[in-house]
């Protein structure tokens, strides 16, 4: 069911497969698919799952320091959701023959990639607002696109995740709105969070289309239906007017409005920083990995106890 290019029937089957995708049909586990399609999906889905799992860390660090009970309940629920999203996604990758164990091993040994945004520190409380509004907002744009993707299990996981992320984005936006209207100290705190998270959020959409190596195939096979630059532009267009309306500044001296296209045009992204963080040299890469490894080790006795319970004589 995973087609190899050496198979004499490959061209015929590939044509049928691409015709199905063009008709808007979903590819389901058990259906024929090119091995390349399977590989690309496992790569994307497992990276996405790891991002959800590592994404718990920057916010988890603030649960005990939430300013009131409501904010604490909300943050706790949000971090719990991220754990759930990781599970949905590992499940989707498992339908393609990957095992949860090998994916977790890849994460724990530092071989697997995850979204670089989580390699930045969370230094003030309003970073919770900036992450919710900017980071989850950016993630929703990407995920709304992926909810339409051609692979059934990934698409369904994305629909569920998008529905839940709506809460994540809005609770963050609510916070930033409140602090922007609050005391000068609160407003300054919100501005500082926006300043630190703005550029890393724009980097989340990935390299420029001209430098993105995987895009053609992913587009043809209905995995990605919008390009990195398209999604990034949509995000900037949505956020800039809202931040301005709140009296907050966008930390981009070159940002300008283009009358003709109706787009807000950003200055150039610091791609050197992007690649440095991807390569493991971001401010928090080592700490995130260490936290995951410790959590895994500290949970060992629970896994052992459950396995022993399952082995019992009944």
């Amino acid at each position: 069911m995973y087609g190899q290019e050496t198979d004499p029937d490959y061209p015929t089957k590939l044509a049928e497969f691409e015709a199905r995708i063009a008709r808007g049909e979903k590819i389901e586990p058990g259906d024929w698919m090119p091995e390349r399609y399977r590989k690309q999906l496992v790569r994307m889905i497992s990276q996405h799952a790891h991002s959800e799992v590592v994404g718990m860390l920057p916010e988890g660090a603030w649960i005990t320091r939430a300013p009131n009970l409501r904010r604490k309940q909300v943050l706790l629920a949000k971090v719990q959701d991220e754990a759930g999203h990781g599970q949905y996604l590992y499940h989707a990758a498992e339908t393609l023959g990957a095992t949860r164990e090998e994916m977790l091993q890849a994460l724990l040994t530092g071989q697997a990639k995850y979204s670089s945004i989580f390699n930045y520190p969370t230094v003030t409380w309003s970073d919770m607002g900036a992450i919710g509004w900017l980071v989850d907002g950016a993630a929703i744009m990407n995920q709304t696109m992926l909810a339409q993707c051609s692979y059934g299990p990934y698409s369904r996981a994305m629909v569920r995740i998008c529905a839940e992320e709506g809460f994540h984005k809005k609770q963050g936006q609510e916070m930033i709105i409140q602090y922007a209207q609050g005391t000068p100290e609160q407003k300054a705190m919100a501005q500082d969070s926006i300043n630190r998270f703005w550029w890393p959020t724009l980097m989340m959409f990935g390299p420029h289309d001209s430098a993105s190596t995987n895009s053609d195939e992913l587009t043809r096979w209905g995995i990605k239906t919008k390009s990195n630059d398209q999604l990034r532009q949509e995000f900037v267009n949505e956020l800039v007017p809202l931040l301005h309306a709140l009296g907050l500044e966008v930390p981009d001296p070159d940002l300008r409005y283009d009358e003709e296209s109706g787009n807000w045009i950003s200055g150039e992204i610091n791609w050197n920083e992007f690649w440095q963080v991807v390569k493991g040299n971001g401010p928090m890469n080592a700490a995130r990995l260490q936290a995951r490894q410790e959590a895994h080790d500290n949970g060992r006795w629970v896994r052992e106890a459950l396995a022993a319970y399952a082995e019992r004589d009944v």
Binding site: R70, Q73, K169, K170, E174
Partner: peptide, 20 residues
Amino acid sequence: DKLYRLPNQYRTVFTMQKIK
């Protein structure tokens, strides 16, 4: 009871309109 998990519990769109 965990209504705070639902996006419709946050009136961000309405609030932004008022601010604008």
